[in-house]
Design a protein around this nucleic acid. Structure first.
Lengths: 124, 124
DNA sequence: ACGGGTCTTTCACATGCAGTTCACGACTGC
DNA sequence: GCAGTCGTGAACTGCATGTGAAAGACCCGT
């Protein structure tokens, strides 16, 4: 194992590969195009993969400063990140919401637990 | 690398693993999706695993304040927790009812084979 | 400096979940 | 039988989160 002299730290979670130094993230061999905030958020989540991270914690780590009441930045960027991750890994759920607690990064196959059918076409 | 002063205590009972700080509970390696109340209740029960906890006690610890007569909150949430625990551990009974006393958390394999009949001798 | 693009923040509305409470039924003890 | 306890499904309401979009802020090439 390498210490701080590691020239190229790589975080891996499932098919996801993140190089914080380079600002690079790839999933399933495909490079993700992420903005600064998106990347920061991803790093914060990957750094604690499998654990629930509170929004306040995410905000402090990525934005710096304290999360103000009513600030939805974290939510919005979680959404943006989800979209890009789902696009790269359609069959996998990556960012899980724990209502009242925070978010958790972990790649889990989509459980068909819900409804087997999902027909739409409901013209309202 | 974790120091001895690990600030993230972990409670374990059987296959259940709970991190009170984080709001995370996993059973058999699978993360449970629990609401705030469900998690609080689980923590309260795990904290006294193997012992009977009175509902008044559970209510005070999770909801705060005193349990009012007729309030079924504890029962309802015990049920919700049971459902999720059973879903994760189908062969194990986890939350036991002690009528008139309270509830007890303890993982016990389901008695022998569940008989096709569930009514017993006492023909009322 | 200007115009066009991207990123970020903020807003508004939609949606879904959580928490509470009620209702009914099964069961138990007296 | 009667009263108390508990299991369980469901209605109701408020809030947390999801989501599309407007409005700035920022960046860059010309």
């Amino acid at each position: 194992m390498q210490a701080a002299s590691d020239p190229d730290p790589v975080l891996r979670v499932g098919d996801l590969e993140v190089r914080p130094r380079e600002g690079l993230a790839a999933v399933a061999g495909r490079t993700l195009m992420l903005s600064v905030r998106e990347f920061g958020l991803l790093v914060a989540l990957v750094g604690r993969a499998g654990h629930i991270v509170r929004r306040e914690e995410l905000y402090e780590q990525v934005w710096g400063g304290e999360l103000r009441r009513g600030d939805r930045s974290v939510d919005v960027y979680v959404h943006k990140l989800r979209v890009k991750l789902e696009e790269a890994l359609p069959q996998v759920r990556s960012i899980h919401t724990h209502v009242g607690f925070g978010y958790r990064l972990e790649f889990e196959p989509i459980t068909g637990t819900s409804h087997p059918f999902h027909s739409e076409g409901t013209a309202r």
